[in-house]
Amino acid sequence: MSEAPPLTGEELRQLCEFLYRRTGMAFDEAKRYYVQRRVTERMGATGEGAFPAYFARLRADAGGEVEQLINAFTVNETYFYREDHQLRCLSRDILPERARAKAPGEAIRIWSVPCATGEEPYSIALWLLENWPEVDAYDVEIVGSDIDTRALEAAQAGLFGRRALMRLSPDLVERYFTPAGPERWRILDDLRESVRFTSVNLVEPASTGAHGRFDVVFCRNVLIYFDDASRRLAAENLYDALVPGGYICLGHTESMSRISPLFAVRRHADAIVYQRPREGSRD
């Protein structure tokens, strides 16, 4: 197989503009090497020898090429403590603020959607036990939801391989998991039982609506794959699933600015997050 020739300056610009408009991921000449590698990979996989033909395929989204290209640019694998700066933001800024808004005895509700095979909602539980000093003072309810019921079964089972645990210290693994065969670990029952799993379709208002309202939603690494219509609807569904003043965290390559004007953007020390305005607020 002959290597595709390097992209010309104009070709690179065109591709970057397409990606920027479609996903908000911003690359330029300075990232040429990184972009070129991924485009070459996709051109090889689609059998397109020339950039113009590949770009036409991409624009027409033939064979789901947009998703394929996004996949090439993002990490599709989920793991414990992924993007932990958001977890830090959760315990340092978001939860103290939400807790102040609660009546005595009222639960703080957190939704991990999509949760895939469970690493994300379990990470939230684990992080809070380790890093939120007030965790004992409140009832915290964590729900993990996904459209993929096989992923949900795996989440429920709570068995993980080495790669999923790679960001956890040996001490955390030791304290919260038990070995369950070669290269397998099972999460402790206490933790397993602290997350409730449900199936959901993010673009179905009745389906998201059935989950009630949350203080914090983690919706990471899924909206980037949706088209404009689905993103808009999913964002509206999530807005509806938040209490006024509640927060949504997106993946680090994602931004609400491409999706919906419903939320106000907030900068905390550790992360940019989006907030459903409190009632009567002008934001």
Binding site: Y20, R21, G24, S255, M256, S257, R258, P261, V265, R267, I272
Partner: peptide, 13 residues
């Protein structure tokens, strides 16, 4: 930035 929301986000950073 390609719209006002993205501009707000960039200015916060």
């Amino acid at each position: 930035a390609m719209n006002g929301l993205e501009a707000l986000e960039k200015l916060l950073v």
